[in-house]
């Protein structure tokens, strides 16, 4: 089944396009939604309850409290609609699934923050990744510009 693996690797977002997310983290998910014929980015902030699936099927369940009501959304990480994910806070948890948060209200729903050297390293790595991505995007844009310029020159010539 190596063929399927190869195909999925091609369909996936490229390596480095997604940040490292963990269960318990507080994240901002930037999700592209359609309103009429316009598209806009909606930001969903909450705690990651669960990571599921692997490869192209990997998804996160994000929970937040809106007006006293718990809201959960599942985001496939490789969906073209998920534009960006920002980890705002690391969580210190001891389970792989935080479903117990559903039964809690008020202050008890908080997840302890994970601190320490590893987290600092993770933040640095994340920053480097973002800069790298931005640089790549810039390069791609410049390459497109050059292409266009070349095309124009060709036309002029």
């Amino acid at each position: 089944m190596q063929l399927i693996q190869t195909i999925e690797n091609e369909l996936k977002k490229p390596a480095g396009a997604l940040p490292a997310v963990h269960v318990g983290d507080t994240v901002e998910v930037h999700y592209l939604i359609r309103e009429g014929d316009k598209e806009r980015v909606q930001i969903f902030t909450g705690t990651i309850l669960a990571l599921k699936g692997r490869g192209i099927r990997r998804s996160i369940t994000v929970r937040r409290i809106v007006q006293g009501e718990g809201v959960e959304r599942i985001f496939p990480l490789h969906s073209p609609r998920v534009i960006d994910i920002q980890v705002t806070r690391r969580g210190d948890v001891r389970r792989s699934k935080l479903y117990y948060l559903r039964d809690r209200v008020g202050k008890k729903t908080r997840v302890k923050e994970l601190l320490g050297e590893k987290v600092r390293q993770g933040r640095a790595a994340e920053k480097a990744r973002r800069e790298n991505q931005a640089a790549q995007a810039n390069q791609a844009a410049e390459a497109a510009d050059i292409d266009q310029g070349a095309d124009q020159e060709a036309v002029e010539a």
């Binding site: 063929l3 369909l11 592209l32 099927r57 496939p76 969906s79 073209p80």
Partner: peptide, 18 residues
């Protein structure tokens, strides 16, 4: 060869066989 999924432009994933 096996099954996988394809994302459409609007984010819906469809199961498909290769």
């Amino acid at each position: 060869k096996g099954m996988t999924q394809l994302f459409a432009e609007d984010g819906t994933a469809t199961g498909c066989t290769v």
